[in-house]
């Protein structure tokens, strides 16, 4: 439940950003973010809020890990 997913910022308007995770886009809030972020940056997103800026390299690694988990989960339930 405390999982936060790295997401790439596609656009920013005021305190809301559109992010991309595995091709899905959604609006998230930047209200909790300490750092300034720009389009193209990666942030950790939990429950609709960015909670930390992260490096792209780490974001890609983590997304790959979660993808493996999701696939394993799908296989297990089939």
């Amino acid at each position: 439940m405390c999982l936060a997913v790295p997401s790439k910022i596609i656009s920013i308007e005021d305190t809301t950003a559109i992010v991309d995770v595995y091709g899905a886009r959604r609006a998230i809030s930047l209200l909790l973010l300490e750092d300034r972020v720009n389009v193209g940056d990666y942030v950790l997103v939990h429950a609709g809020f960015a909670i930390q800026k992260v490096q792209e390299e780490y974001a890609e690694e983590t997304l790959e890990l979660f993808k493996q988990w999701i696939e394993a989960e799908r296989k297990a339930s089939n």
Binding site: C2, A4, H46
Partner: peptide
Amino acid sequence: GFETTSPSVAG
């Protein structure tokens, strides 16, 4: 939820 979540509710 824990501290990961409560700030988002405050937000």
